[in-house]
Design a protein around this nucleic acid. Sequence first.
DNA 1: TGACAATCGTTAGGAAACTAATAGTTAGGT
DNA 2: ACCTAACTATTAGTTTCCTAACGATTGTCA
Lengths: 181, 181
Amino acid sequence: MPGQVPFLKDVPRYDVLRAEAQLYPELDPSACYAFLHLLKTGDQLLSLDAEFLGHLGTRQGRFNLLLILGHCAQKLPAAADLAECTGVTRATITGLLDGLEKDGLVERRDDPSDRRLVRVGLTPRGEAFLDRVRPVYFRWFARLLEPLAEPERQLLVELLQKVQQQMGVLAEELRQPAVLN
Amino acid sequence: MPGQVPFLKDVPRYDVLRAEAQLYPELDPSACYAFLHLLKTGDQLLSLDAEFLGHLGTRQGRFNLLLILGHCAQKLPAAADLAECTGVTRATITGLLDGLEKDGLVERRDDPSDRRLVRVGLTPRGEAFLDRVRPVYFRWFARLLEPLAEPERQLLVELLQKVQQQMGVLAEELRQPAVLN
DNA sequence: TGACAATCGTTAGGAAACTAATAGTTAGGT
DNA sequence: ACCTAACTATTAGTTTCCTAACGATTGTCA
């Protein structure tokens, strides 16, 4: 399972990119190098996470939902809340809940005061599953970050945050239909 | 289009994770913080890339294939070569080529010396498309990395490489069916 | 009060990757 | 020479997300 997106499996060496930049004046080699590494790392990490959770008998989407429900404890969020805080559509939540409910890990309950809402809570079986799997997952990604010392982790986060912020800028531009000209 | 995977849309603040670690002794807050940032950045970047390419009239999978074909120039790789160097299955390549061929950007040709092979080349129209879109794409991700100075980019790549290496270790373990016990 | 808009969850259908199984072709070993 | 093994590309079916549209419910405000 190398990746979910047809990417360069191997990022080119930096000197290859420098040579490439002779051909294309628009190509910034150091930006390209960092960009490809970000893309590749993200893609691989997503895949590896999915594979690991598969070994644990669950899936990315469902497990993240369970984590959130475990965190909410007794508050019983509505389906729309789950969509909001996971960042997927309500339609996707419906599908995830169908699977979790069929496995008996989760329960849908009507809200007596607003009959549009469907509130969601863990069943005892869901809680047991979470108690069993959560520590394994925590230990797993702790190992993943093991090669990075504390200050390196902090530095990595800061660099990623800068990229995230710039992604926000570019995303906004993309969705604005060229206001200025 | 925030992301393709039901993640935490917002990574929790660091002090929240520290509090959480009181409850779960297995939770390493700094590892979790970095892990979530990596996951989120990767997911968002993948989405944003897809959205940008959508605006340019193409898709991630197809465009990456075009880039590779443009780079191979006159060598005419076989479909299996494309699967190999993009890291997806041959079945996926078939689907991508169907789309590209229908749009007239790409051409399948039989190999006279090995009739199992299907060699793939850009049509003139495909080359024209690539010449038009490639500079735009190059400029786009150059802007994405703009907030990072040269040494920061280098540092980011080094940190990502360490994570990638550790992912390799964990992936191998995962696929080894517990040899030692 | 009663129309209108907004919100909820669900359904239906599409996109892009995957796995598994297929038919056709080539290479190796006896 | 021939049988088997390996390899090619394709097809078919699954997964998981998406968007769009729907009926049901609630809130707003003339």
